[in-house]
């Protein structure tokens, strides 16, 4: 297979686009497309300060790399979750993130959950009894809370995450299976800022996960290859596998699923009403972030509960 731009041997073939490219042209194409999506969805401008949530994985490091190549003011935020799983998972992911930041001379903020809140994520999960024996629910809650806190406290205009199209399609698939209308209404490349909540954007939301892996390999990004020890058997991975089987026989199925959803949502064509009023949000008396309850937000309640239980 030949590169469509230069005729050299191709390294990446994107069947959904009927486009094959050599390594050099692929490394040009990905940032060009990212810039196009940033503008199309009005994510941010070159004048704004961006906080990139980096985990040490391929997607977030690739995003940071691309935004830097495009000349954006992008600093990193790494959250130390305290996950070991027998493979030193958090330690290794932090090492790779720091290595990337040092190599490219980029600013990286590091927040260690245990230092901030007394316990690492697996222990917080265990003693708060959230998540049915798996820490993923507590991990997601803590990440959302901390990413927003840091973005807000340090004056960033926007928080960028490395979600790719497979992430988005898997979430969409899950929410469609259960007709979770509120979640469907909220899903998109941009979640606008509101009282106390930073704007959130997903500049990689139209790239397949496979394409981001190819980008990381082609550009020599060293990322953590091991899966989070708690991710094994997760629903989102199962949905991704199902969608990849579909994609194998129907090239472009994942992309069409996501893009047609966005179009329908924007036109108000979904079964849900186009504009549902946001529930009134209050400020959490402890951390000040928005919450739909009258008292502490979910995160602060979880921390209070965790810290009230003696650890054996």
């Amino acid at each position: 297979m030949k590169c469509k731009k230069c005729g050299a041997k191709a390294s990446v073939n994107m069947r959904q686009h009927k486009l094959a490219l050599c390594k050099e042209h692929y490394l040009e194409w990905v940032p060009e497309q990212t810039e196009r999506f940033i503008k199309k969805y009005e994510m941010f401008t070159h004048a704004e300060k961006i906080l990139v949530a980096v985990s040490g994985g391929k997607d977030s490091l690739a995003l940071w790399d691309i935004l830097t190549r495009l000349g954006y003011q992008a600093d990193g935020l790494y959250l130390g979750l305290g996950i070991d799983g027998g493979i030193n998972y958090s330690h290794e992911s932090q090492r790779l993130t720091e290595k990337f930041a040092n190599k490219h001379n980029l600013k990286l903020h590091i927040v260690d959950i245990e230092k901030e809140y007394g316990q690492p994520i697996p222990v917080l999960s265990e003693i708060s009894h959230r998540g049915h024996g798996k820490p993923c629910a507590v991990c997601g809650l803590a990440k959302r809370h901390e990413m927003n806190r840091i973005a807000r406290d340090l004056g960033y205009d926007v928080l960028a995450t490395g979600h790719n199209l497979d992430d988005e399609a898997a979430v969409l698939f899950g929410n469609t299976l259960s007709w979770a209308s509120e979640y469907l209404l909220r899903q998109g490349p941009v979640l606008p800022a509101s009282d106390g909540l930073a704007r959130k954007v997903k500049p990689l939301c139209r790239f397949y996960e496979r394409e981001m892996t190819a980008y990381s390999l082609a550009s020599g990004i060293e990322y953590i290859y091991d899966e989070c020890p708690f991710a094994e058997g997760s629903q989102s991975i199962y949905y991704k596998e199902l969608l990849n089987q579909l994609e194998t026989t129907r090239p472009g199925a994942k992309l069409t699923f996501y893009l047609r959803f966005l179009e329908a949502r924007n036109r108000g064509d979904l079964f849900i009403e186009k504009n549902i009023e946001r529930a009134h949000l209050h400020s959490c008396p402890k951390c000040g972030q928005p919450t739909s309850t009258d008292d502490l937000c979910s995160f602060c309640r979880m921390i209070e509960k965790a810290n009230s239980v003696p650890v054996s």
């Binding site: 992430d167 898997a170 996960e209 892996t213 989070c228 991710a231 989102s236 991975i237 596998e241």
Partner: peptide, 8 residues
């Protein structure tokens, strides 16, 4: 063969 799926 490099597995591309990640997440949880």
């Amino acid at each position: 063969l490099i597995a591309v799926i990640s997440g949880g």
